[in-house]
Design a protein around this nucleic acid. Structure first.
Lengths: 212, 212
DNA sequence: CTGGCATCTTGATATAAATCACAACTACTT
DNA sequence: AAGTAGTTGTGATTTATATCAAGATGCCAG
């Protein structure tokens, strides 16, 4: 119940509502690499990611993973499947240890959907995701790899060295080799510098020029 | 009011509710090329596209248009801005004559958000858009231009020659030159044939092989 | 029907990024 | 401390697609 409250989604619920919600919610822990759901599994619950990094991906015929979405806490994951009552269109796996809360959707619908405040929160969560996807499109289809990396660094200044480079490469839809070369290029341009902890921004406005 | 009812979104409303909704809704007609809203305009209404083709785009420093989204009827457009109460993050223009219904969001929120059925419809509409965007990502980032065109043709068999080729090229994020060459390739592979009305599918399952 | 503008096609060239191959570095594990 | 697996860096090569430049086709207006 405390876990539910920490999620901005539910912060406006009173204790009674929270207790009700807890009665059909379920907290689960996962290890790095474990699968949250597989493509074509049935979707019965709303899933809130509250800890860890979760990737949603498909595999093509050559067994390449296509990462559709990478979720950080706190997010609502793959709500489409539950809302539409269809099977999961992709698989989800943890890239770190993680924790989720599963909320039984039938009960949720019955008990909470009439609450306008709740509905509005839900809308916002979805539209946030829409914005995220639109950004992914703008980032990946329009910009070249240097610009993509520059924008990525610019946006995540603080969290710059939290992902492995090959994960960043996946996220930016380029190969690790290209990423490595692109980092080097930005160092040569004196926009970044590299020390024992990884890369650090040296000239933030210079980065901006590359993608705007 | 009849216009509202035709939108699947509202088909479950009774007459009283529809009348109420009409009282703060507004139907507007637009000519080809006209602007529905500009980037940084204030968003006060929900916008339903009920006729025509609407593009949502940004322009970069070189004045290239980046098309974020192309809407066909019947869609809910750019709801994020209203939901979050922020300025439009992109501009929208009609590529054909068009009709929209604008619904005052404040009133909508007050009158309808407590209706669970309505809320659920709203959710579905948003999640439909999420799915669309995920498809755009899967289509454009992962597939090469031949596969993109094959999938496009496969999905729109009937509406194959409704857009100009340069519009299709935009949609598939390739140049008209590349599109032309790719069409030719598919004809050589005997998956398509070309007659006076344009291209026609000759081997549909053959097309599928290219993108699956 | 004819000139003129849009669009589409085709060819030649340039370029960004993927791929392939392997070397260098890092961080665990026993 | 050495060995192994996982990660990152580098060079050489290939590939897909964009770009540049012209020509061909279609299509409307007078």
């Amino acid at each position: 119940m405390r876990d539910l409250k920490q999620f901005y989604f539910f912060e406006n619920l009173d204790d009674e509502q929270l207790a009700l919600l807890s009665s059909f919610s379920n907290k689960k822990h996962f290890e790095k690499g474990s699968i949250l759901f597989y493509e074509k599994d049935e979707a019965k619950s709303l899933i809130l990611l509250i800890e860890g990094v979760l990737k949603v991906y498909k595999t093509d015929q050559k067994n390449n993973e296509i990462i559709m979405h990478r979720f950080m806490p706190i997010s609502l994951v793959a709500e489409m499947a539950v809302l539409e009552g269809i099977l999961y269109p992709a698989s989800a796996a943890f890239e770190s240890a993680g924790v989720v809360i599963e909320i039984d959707f039938e009960r949720f619908k019955k008990e909470f959907l009439h609450n306008p405040q709740m509905a509005l929160l839900f809308f916002k969560s979805l539209s946030k995701k829409i914005k995220y996807l639109e950004d992914v499109i703008a980032l990946n289809i329009v910009l070249d790899s240097t610009a993509r990396l520059a924008k990525y660094i610019f946006d995540k200044e603080d969290a710059l060295n939290t992902l492995k480079q090959y994960q960043v490469a996946e996220h930016l839809h380029m190969t690790p080799e290209t990423l490595s070369r692109t980092f080097k290029k930005l160092v040569i341009l004196e926009l970044l510098e590299k020390d024992s902890n990884g890369y650090k921004i040296k000239n933030k406005e210079g980065l901006r020029v590359l993608f705007e």
